[in-house]
Each structure stands twice: as C-alpha cells, then as structure tokens.
Design a binder for these strands. Structure first.
Length: 414
DNA sequence: TGTCCACTGGAAGGGAGGGCTT
DNA sequence: AAGCCCTCCCTTCCAGTGGACA
C-alpha cells in the first residue's frame, strides 16, 4: 500500500474541502445570491401548483450563467420538500429535461411518459412506436390520477431548432384532453428569438408568463464566488482580492457565473497540483488561460476532417511565415494536404464556406478585401496560437498521417 | 474611364444517411 | 423490409463586385 503510486496524491493536503462538487456547474446551492426577485416571481407563478391547480406556462430567458437553471432547479427542490410535509389529494411532479440531451419529439414524449410507468414491461421503447401512440400512452398514464405535472425543458431553443415545435404543440394542448391531471411547462432558453420559429398558437400558450434573467455584475459575481469558495476551499486558501479578480474577469465576459465558478475551480486545481498552500493571482490568470485554450481545443477537436485539413493548411502556412493568405492560397495548400493522404478534394466553393465557418468559430480571421486589378478575395489569418492548434490538429489520425516534409516542399513551390 | 481579376455569395439540385411510418 | 421524408454536405453554375491598372 505504501508503495502505491496514488498514495502520494491521495495523502497530499488539498486546498479543497472534501466536497469539491460545490464548484461543479450542475451544483445547486442552498441559497442563490442576487436572484431574490426572480425566485419570488417564479415562485408566485408556481405556487398555484401547490393548491392542485395548473400554473401558467413560463418561458425563462437569459444569457448563459445567469442562474436560470439553478433558480428553476432550486424551486423544484423547494416545492418537493413543501409537498413532502403535506398530505394532499393530488400529487405534484417536477421533471427536469435537458433538451440538448433529449432532442427529438419522440424522445421528450417517451421520457415524460416513462416517468409515470412503473412496470418495466410497459415502458415506452427508445424507438419504434409512432409518435402518436407515445402521445396517447402518455395521456392515458397521466390521467389515471389527479396530479399537477411541471416539466422543465432546459435549452428549449435547441429542441426547436433541431426538431421543430411539434412536441411543444402537443404538450401545450394536452391539457384540453386531460380530465384529472394537468401539465405546465417551464421553458429555459438563452436565445430570445427562438419563439419566432414557433407556431403562433404554441407561442401564445407557451409564453403565458415570461421572465428575463439579467447578467450578474462584478460585485454580484463576487458574492456568488465568496459563497462557493467558502463551501469548496479550506480556510485561508483564497483571499478576497483573488475572488474579486475572478469576478472581474468573468464580468468582462457578460457576467457569466458559470465561467466565474469554473475559473475558481480551475485555479484551485492548478494550485493544488503545484502543491501550493494558497491560490495566488498567478493561478487565476493561469486558469483563465487554460480555460480559453481548452475551449479552443475542444472546438478544433470536434471539427469535421475536411475543416481540420483547411485549418491545418492555414496553420502550416502561418508556421512558414505567411500570415495573410487568400482563399486561393489556402485552397492550394489544402489540395496538397488532401493529396498527401488520399482524401477527397472538395471544390473551392465549398472550401470557401468552410473558411467562413472557421471564421465564425473564431479560430481564424477572414475578411473580404479587394486587391483591385488582382481580384477580390478574403484575407485570412490565424487567430489562435500556432503551436497549440497544430498539436490539437495532429491528434486527428488523418491529419497525423500527413507527411510534413513533402508538404513543406510543395508549399515552397506554390 | 473602362477593364478585368479572383474571387464572393446566392441558388438549385444531387445524393447519402438517419429516423419515422407502413 | 421498404418507402418516404428530412437534413446535411457537397457540387455546379453564375451573376456580382471593389479597386488597381492601362
């Protein structure tokens, strides 16, 4: 046991208290600073459910990290603990569904339906049934008892963009067909405009009540971080000035509390790894850097192969000192890269679109310029670090197979 | 002043693939 | 299993264009 390689890591004094989950994005704290107004507003709407009546449907808007999900989950917990103490003649159900995970009409209906089906044999299968049957099965199960069902659809905009508003139409209309039970929906979205894509009938039913969560400012973020830091870190590990720094950095990025908390956690982890006793300013900046790089790396990693090849071409050119490229130049290098690994070569038109996509993702900078006599094109430059990007791209098997010396030779000929 | 380059960006359509329906 | 529809990725075709240069 003494010689086990992990002993040292486990024994090591940690800056974190045992419960470091308090800095995870999914953690819902027992109190939410600076969300009193929103909590009370939503509680007033939902309180109807505690009397056995159907509350209005609610749409909750707000940018990422403004506490939408936390507030809604918090109220769910509160309602559950309230009803636990009372014996009512109806049951209250509060279900949370993340539409980024369950993103099809069928999936949502089946998911909700299965919550009410206790017998395994009777459960709705993952796939196979016509959507209409799932709907009627759900309706039948719901109406067996007197109940109020509140369904939270987080990231509801993702669902609408991907699968349209059919489920929402069904769910909004289901109350007309129910005698005993009732359903209300809380939709959470960070996109204010998604309702434009809804059928007008769905739009008005779903948006009976609307709430907008404003971003946190730096001092509000600081209170949130102070609360979390107390829960997560041992005493004296982090001081006020470092917390302020985290808050200030996150406030610059439109007051995203999740970002701020991530910053705190990563700073802690980095300091911990270096066996520090305190989280100094240096580690906050290191954490900021790491988070940004991780973000970029993740974007690049999930790119389709063809986009990776285009980007790789731009990276190699930048590595060779050509900072500003035209679409034609990028295409030439790209063709060489494809040839060297035998990949199919896309048309220049398509590659131009891929370049636009890379531009939108922020990995490159591409703006249209005119070089007069010499035509109109995009001026393309890399906007992420060369070496790191190259490393991430080379993790890809296909990119890895490229023979660099050959490419460099070809590039000199171009 | 007009020309003309090297593209841009819109439009239409093909075809592969996945999921739903019959 | 087969048909259908939808979405995504891609190709083909083409009109349009900012500005250096003759």
């Amino acid at each position: 046991m003494e010689d086990n390689i992990f002993t040292k890591y486990i024994r090591q004094n940690s800056l974190f208290k045992k419960d470091r989950d308090t800095l995870r994005p999914s953690y819902v704290p027992a109190s939410l600073p600076h969300r009193d107004t929103e909590i009370h507003q939503l509680a007033a709407i939902l309180s109807t459910a505690l009397k056995g009546e159907r509350p209005s449907n609610v749409l909750v808007f707000g940018k990422t990290g403004t506490g939408k999900t936390a507030t809604v989950k918090y109220l769910g917990n509160e309602m559950r603990s309230y009803t636990k103490e009372k014996a009512e003649d109806f049951t209250l159900h509060y279900y949370y569904i993340n539409c980024e995970v369950v993103d099809t009409n069928y999936g949502i209906l089946a998911h909700i339906g299965n919550r009410f089906i206790t017998q395994w044999e009777e459960r709705i299968p993952f796939t196979g049934w016509p959507t209409e049957s799932v709907y009627s099965k759900l309706r039948g199960e719901l109406d067996k008892k007197r109940r109020v069902v509140i369904i939270v659809l987080d990231e509801i905009d993702k669902l609408v963009y991907k699968s349209g508003d059919d489920v929402l139409y069904h769910l909004a209309k289901i109350n007309d067909d129910l005698k005993q039970a009732s359903i209300s929906i809380i939709g959470i979205s960070n996109d204010l405009k998604f309702t434009e894509f809804l059928d007008p009938r769905v739009q008005s039913r779903l948006g009976e009540e609307k709430m907008v969560f404003p971003p946190y400012n730096a001092s509000e973020l600081k209170d949130i971080l102070t609360q979390r830091a107390e829960m997560a870190f041992e005493d004296g590990v982090i001081s006020e000035s470092e917390i302020s720094l985290c808050a200030a950095l996150a406030a610059q990025e439109h007051g995203d509390a999740r970002r701020a908390i991530d910053l705190l956690r990563v700073a802690g982890e980095l300091a911990d790894r270096d066996s520090q006793e305190k989280i100094s300013e240096k580690y906050v900046y290191k954490a900021k850097n790491k988070i940004e790089l991780d973000c970029i790396a993740e974007v690049i990693r999930t790119l389709p192969t063809q986009s990776k090849l285009v980007l790789y071409g731009i990276v190699l050119s930048a590595d060779n000192g050509s900072n500003k490229l035209t679409t034609g130049q990028v295409y030439d290098v790209y063709k060489e890269l494809c040839a060297s690994i035998g990949a199919s070569v896309l048309t220049q038109r398509r590659v131009a679109d891929l370049i636009s996509e890379l531009d939108m993702l922020g990995t490159i900078n591409a703006r249209v310029i005119s070089k007069g006599r010499y035509g109109r094109t995009r001026e393309i430059s890399l906007s992420v670090p060369i070496q790191e990007t190259k490393d991430v791209l080379e993790e890809d098997d296909e990119v890895h197979a490229i023979s660099l010396p050959t490419i460099y030779k070809q590039m000199r000929l171009l």
